[in-house]
């Protein structure tokens, strides 16, 4: 690696962790509803995602939390017959405005999916992919980004000798951290995680959780999870959704210890769901 490249492994120390409500909302969702054809999946959801914090979306299967997170970077656009109403503002700009540059939007919101989906290329090419599609060809920049992103994703020590091996040869947990490295390589503002640990074993899950803990503050993280302990461990705020509706949203500790709604209480104590 070339000299003088800022690999920034020490950001956890250098970046002050924001306190609640300090930095304001980065994403404002307002009366957002969504239909797949004639089936309504989301009903008038309103919530603000605070900058720099980890927000967990919990709720039983089919409650619309994945739909909601995929609406944030407009991944749902791929689906035919999709209809929406309401607004989602990202940095005060409505992302569903017709003149919004969807590609630019996605570049500012990294996404990690339920199943690790590394591309069939080398480890290094995987991480450099967001830069490559931006047209960056400078090897020095690409190399520096690869190192920085892999270190930030706590994967560097495991793959530093395998950068030119096929990414599909990594283990499941490593693949998922590679996907996180890829998502943060393009320096997004927000990191969307759609059940990032559901296909992983407990050890790999623990590593990802540690990683989320380290990444908070630097990125606004929104994580969808089925695992309530996970939500309790990693998140600052928690939103509980049920049947496409946001039931309760607030401080994680409050949601888990003293929820306002009976349904939230039932869910977080394992009485249903």
């Amino acid at each position: 690696m070339a000299e003088g490249i800022d690999t920034r492994t020490d950001f956890v120390q250098t970046i002050s962790y924001p306190r609640k409500g300090e930095d304001g909302a980065v994403i404002e969702i307002e009366k957002f509803s969504l239909w797949y054809g004639s089936h309504q999946a989301l009903f008038d959801n309103t919530l603000n995602i605070e900058r720099g914090l980890v927000t967990a979306l919990i709720g039983p299967s089919g409650c619309g939390k994945s739909t909601l997170i995929r609406s944030l970077n407009r991944m749902n656009d791929l689906i035919d017959g999709l209809r929406i109403s309401g607004t989602i503002r990202f940095n005060a700009e409505n992302i569903y405005n017709p003149d919004v540059d969807v590609i630019g939007l996605r570049k500012r919101m990294g996404m990690v999916f339920q199943k690790p989906n590394p591309f069939p290329m080398t480890v290094a090419d995987n991480v450099a992919y967001p830069l490559r599609v931006d047209g960056i060809r400078d090897r020095r920049v690409l190399d520096a980004t690869v190192v920085r992103a892999l270190k930030a994703a706590a994967l560097w020590d495991e793959v530093k000798d395998r950068l030119n091996d096929n990414a599909l040869g990594l283990s499941g947990g490593q693949q998922q951290r590679l996907c996180i490295a890829r998502a943060i390589a393009g320096e997004p503002d927000v990191l969307l995680m759609d059940e990032p640990c559901s296909a992983l074993d407990p050890l790999a899950t623990a590593k990802i959780e540690d990683l989320i803990y380290e990444l908070r503050g630097r990125y606004t993280i929104i994580i969808v999870t089925h695992n309530m302990q996970q939500a309790a461990r990693v998140s600052d705020n928690t939103a509980f959704m049920y049947l496409g509706t946001l039931i309760e949203y607030g401080d994680t500790r409050t949601i888990f210890t003293n929820p306002k709604h009976g349904r939230t209480q039932d869910y977080v104590t394992g009485r249903f769901g």
């Binding site: 996605r106 990294g110 591309f119 992919y129 967001p130 998502a183």
Partner: peptide
């Protein structure tokens, strides 16, 4: 999932198909 991964990285549809 691979297409989604690429699109989520900010690749255009053609870039996704091409790469």
């Amino acid at each position: 999932s691979m297409r989604e991964g690429s699109l989520a990285c900010g690749a255009s549809k053609w870039q996704t198909i091409r790469h």
